[in-house]
């Protein structure tokens, strides 16, 4: 087990290296750099641009630049943001925490919805309720997330029930501790709902399917034959086994949340890693962009690792692969 974790963690390093190198090359491959926008300003001369390029080391070949960046990484320094004129680290951490909160809230909402839905659907399998839930989940699955995000802000605009954009209200500093918490949650609820709507169907389906599969296993039949109550069967045997794949799914969906939800962040103005990635890509803010991508890749890989570990814990056949 420990070997698996160690092996996988070690394999993270080349992966992250490849992501960093890949994104670095990509940014360099695309024409235009951070300073291109300045050339629009008629008051800035070409000499100024050349000087600034020199200052930002944009005139050096990519490998020199990349090498320097790598040295910085080892020292825990993600480089400098041209666009914000500050260290990339502080920027990234701030946005990362916002994204993680959004992801956490989204996952919580997903579980809160998917667990009862899955349980009910498996329990009353093939009933009208099951079909309604299946239908609802198909509907959710088929709605593109930016459409949901757009509808959500139309909804917010029409009703005025929810704030739009940003993480806090303007008077956040003046609020009490509980006031701050509710203010934060109030801002969080709409974007996390949009994210949850995309995740609920897959969680629901997974849970329902694995519950049904578990319930048809021999040991459940045995348990039934022993005369155990349905409640005990559900609680003690079925749920425990069926929930494992769900937990590994949590790990897997982290990546989807971080990279896939960027359009939600952009449309709903949530200052997270996704919207930072997009803005840094559009403004060619090189080091911030790479840091964002590396962080996204890291989280995704950690999520996958977590999923694998949990899967291995649940299934001995994968834990100890037989040599054939």
């Amino acid at each position: 087990m420990l070997k698996l974790i160690l092996q996988r963690s070690m394999s993270l390093i080349p992966l992250l290296f490849a992501v960093a190198l890949g994104s670095f090359l990509l940014v360099r491959l695309a024409p235009g750099d951070f300073l291109a926008e300045m050339s629009l300003n008629p008051q800035i001369s070409e000499e100024t641009l050349v000087r600034l390029r020199e200052q930002y080391a944009l005139d050096q070949p990519w490998y020199t630049q990349f090498g320097k960046w790598l040295v910085g990484i080892v020292q825990g320094n993600f480089g400098y943001s041209f666009a914000y004129n500050c260290e990339a680290n502080s920027l990234i951490y701030e946005r990362l925490s916002n994204t993680l909160w959004l992801a956490l809230a989204g996952l919580t909402l997903t579980l809160l919805a998917a667990l009862p839905m899955g349980l009910l659907a498996a329990k009353y399998r093939s009933s009208t309720l099951d079909r309604i839930l299946a239908f609802l989940s198909t509907i959710c699955l088929s709605s593109p997330s930016f459409l949901l995000a757009l509808l959500a802000i139309v909804f917010a605009a029409r009703t005025g029930w929810f704030p739009i954009g940003s993480v806090h209200s303007l008077n956040f500093e003046k609020l009490s501790a509980t006031g701050r918490l509710t203010d934060f949650l109030h801002h969080l609820i709409l974007p996390s709902t949009v994210i949850a709507l995309r995740l609920v169907p897959s969680f629901f389906r997974q849970l329902r399917a694995s519950l049904i599969e578990t319930l048809s296993q021999d040991y459940i039949l045995t348990a039934r034959a022993k005369g155990l109550s349905e409640r005990m069967i559900f609680q003690k045997h079925a749920l425990g086994n069926a929930i494992n794949p769900l937990i590994s799914m949590l790990g897997n969906s982290l990546g989807t949340l971080l990279s896939g939800a960027f359009i939600v962040e952009v449309i709903m103005s949530w200052p997270g890693l996704g919207s930072l990635t997009v803005s840094s890509l559009l403004s060619r803010d090189l080091y911030v962009l790479i840091a964002c991508l590396v962080f996204a890749a890291l989280l995704l890989a950690l999520g996958n690792l977590l999923a694998d570990i949990l899967l291995a814990l649940a299934d001995p056949r994968i834990r100890n692969p037989k040599k054939s």
Partner: peptide
Amino acid sequence: DPDRNTQLLKFQQGE
């Protein structure tokens, strides 16, 4: 507020 929809909505809501 980078998004202009957000700008408009905040103005309409009095923020």
